[in-house]
């Protein structure tokens, strides 16, 4: 059957990889949209407590974080410390921190600014109370106690 005679060598045709990059780009954009860039590296150990009645923070760009916990590096001691941006701070620095956070935002958005307290569950309330008092002084009333989802009652 000459009509079905083989023409040349038979081989597996190569897969067209032209659209591969498009797919990967799609992935990339997907991840870029749903994630946020980690702003500061943590200097303190934080394991936030569990809670059931959690609400999601709506606009991430309008949230400023205050971290409280034991320093990861032992040379800074074992007492709970406050971390603002990328450095340890004291209670007095919170005022300036909030003012600066406000100035970085649009005028319209300033009243919506939320302060999220990321506090380790082993921390004593004293330091948290001090922070709250300081926030009240600078009229940063909207706060969020950062938590994980989970049951409160101890097993």
């Amino acid at each position: 059957m000459a009509r079905f005679a083989k023409k040349g060598k038979r081989g597996v045709p190569g897969i067209n990889t032209g659209s591969m990059s498009d797919i990967i780009f799609m992935f990339l954009f997907f991840f870029m949209v749903i994630t946020t860039i980690r702003e500061s590296s943590l200097l303190v150990k934080i394991k936030v407590p569990q809670a059931t009645e959690v609400a999601k923070l709506e606009r991430k760009s309008l949230v400023s974080f205050i971290y409280v916990g034991q320093p990861i590096d032992q040379k800074y001691g074992t007492e709970s410390r406050i971390q603002l941006n990328n450095a340890f701070a004291s209670i007095k620095d919170i005022r300036e921190f909030i003012t600066r956070e406000r100035e970085a935002r649009d005028e319209v958005d300033r009243p919506l600014l939320t302060t999220s307290l990321k506090v380790d569950e082993e921390t004593r309330m004293g330091i948290v109370t001090d922070i709250k008092q300081e926030l009240r002084q600078v009229s940063a009333f909207k706060i969020n106690y950062s938590t994980r989802k989970g049951s409160v009652v101890k097993q």
Binding site: I24, F31, T36, A51, A55, L57, S116, A140, I143, K149
Partner: peptide
């Protein structure tokens, strides 16, 4: 893609929202 995967975090911040008194 890998760069973004490494430098970003997906964790949406959740918590108990409260309003402090003046």
């Amino acid at each position: 893609l890998t760069f973004f995967l490494l430098t970003s975090s997906i964790d949406t911040d959740m918590g108990i929202i409260r309003k402090l008194p003046p």
